[in-house]
Simulated assay, not measured.
Amino acid sequence: MGHGGNVIDELVTDHREVEELFGRIEALAPGEKDRKLYADQVTMELVRHSVAEEAYLYPAVREHVPNGDAMADEEIEDHAKAEQIMKDLEGCDAGDPEFDRLISMLMTEIRAHLADEEENLFPALRAACPPQALDELGDKVRQAKKMAPTRPHPSAPDTPPLNKLLAPGAGLVDRVRDALSGRGKKA
């Protein structure tokens, strides 16, 4: 993640990457161990993406878009549901029957969220925000994703300013844990 361009282009590219990982999971038979590898990768991408959206995208939506508060609140609520599913999924192996139930729930939740953003939120933001502001938001989102956590933290704050203060520290700890465990990497 970190593609360049304005915030909407950046986030839509992230959405396509997540969908590609979902496709890889769906292409494998239940119980196959690579399903867990791809689930870990999708979790890492979704957590970074969500943290960046909560830090920069949703505050911009609140500021610029008519009815932006309600839109941002709905998106943050979607993130909270998905984050709890990811946290529950973290403790499951691919062979665990709960894994299939949880990954299916996650895919359903995320696909609905992505569609809502792309069909409603992004067009509203594009209409309300000058192109230069969208470009600046894209830069901020890319920087936030570099420092963001890679594991779900359902009890962490999801609105500024606390989320911006705590995310880099949690991100550092998560990246160290990932490096030590090999999480998200093929053996």
Rank of each mutant, 00 (worst) to 15 (best):
M71Y: 05
L102E: 02
L46S: 01
A39R: 02
P149H: 13
G2C: 07
I110Q: 01
Q143F: 05
N163K: 09
S181W: 09
R48D: 05
A82L: 07
G138F: 02
M105W: 10
G4V: 04
L180K: 13
D96T: 02
A128I: 07
N163L: 09
H79Q: 14
V176R: 09
V141G: 01
I25Q: 01
K140M: 12
K81V: 12
A29H: 04
R24C: 03
K87N: 12
E17M: 06
G184N: 08
R126S: 15
M44I: 14
T13L: 09
T150S: 11
R16E: 11
M1D: 03
A70K: 12
G171C: 07
T108D: 12
E53S: 01
E63D: 15
L121E: 11
T13Y: 08
L57F: 13
E20Y: 07
A52C: 10
P131I: 06
K146I: 03
K33G: 10
D14R: 01
V47L: 07
R62C: 07
H3C: 04
E54Q: 08
S50N: 12
E136W: 04
E53T: 00
A94C: 09
G182N: 06
P130C: 07
L21A: 06
D73Q: 15
E17H: 04
L180N: 11
L137V: 03
L102I: 06
H113T: 05
E119I: 10
D34H: 09
A27T: 07
V173I: 15
R24Q: 09
D9Q: 14
D40N: 11
D100G: 04
V173E: 10
R177S: 09
T159I: 12
E77M: 13
L89Y: 00
Y58T: 13
E98F: 03
V141Y: 01
L106R: 00
R101Q: 06
M1V: 10
D40Q: 13
H113W: 04
Q84R: 15
S181R: 14
V61G: 03
T159S: 14
